[in-house]
Amino acid sequence: MKLGFLQKALAASREGRPAVLATNLTNGLQTFIEATETAGDLTLDAAALQAIRKAVTEDRNATIETADGPVFIEVFNPRLRCVIVGAVHIAQPLARMAALTGYLVTVVDPRTAFASDARFPDVVLSTDWPDEAMEKLKPNRRTAVVTLTHDPKLDDPALSVALRSDAFYIGALGSKKTHAARCKRLQALGFNEEELARIHGPVGLDIGAISPAEIAIAIMAQITQVLRAEPQSDREAA
């Protein structure tokens, strides 16, 4: 791989732009494709370009057969992001676990006593109001949103923005009773049952978690399940 392509792939990923590297596995010739820009010495025909578009849409690497031999299509999709609303105790282990899992993490809490660098070293913090913070963060299909404040004033505005976005995962801390009350409030704001069903509440897989770190494991496991469940079964079937 040309060092230049490697740097382009890193930059695209950091800046949230999808990119593709196509490699001929027989002769090693490569072409890097990003939006409308193409660079490299591997010539791609219409069929190959179509396969590349499909790979990007499905976020899946693929090998295709061409007249000049097999070509590997590698998709560099934007980094996964995790937005945690509520700089509470559970957010401390969750932020670290999400970072370890490969997510870019932002913790949102306007209460500066909670959202402090001392409590969250090396974590990006936002002390904007959750709805403003979420509008700026623009959750997309590569974003997981978890609300942990337990406080409707903070959780509800964040959930409202998340529900209007393509976030692949939305989770909200709270018992069944709390969640039922939350759904009622959000219904009053105009969200229907189908939309509210996107919220995982009570949040996390039911593994009997008690401590904040254990609850963080349950949440991270559920986020992973939602992200990977389908592609994983496809992969095993292939």
Binding site: S13, P78, R79, G102
Partner: peptide, 8 residues
């Protein structure tokens, strides 16, 4: 697909 690959 990116994430752990970025570090590499």
């Amino acid at each position: 697909m990116m994430g752990d690959n970025e570090e590499i």
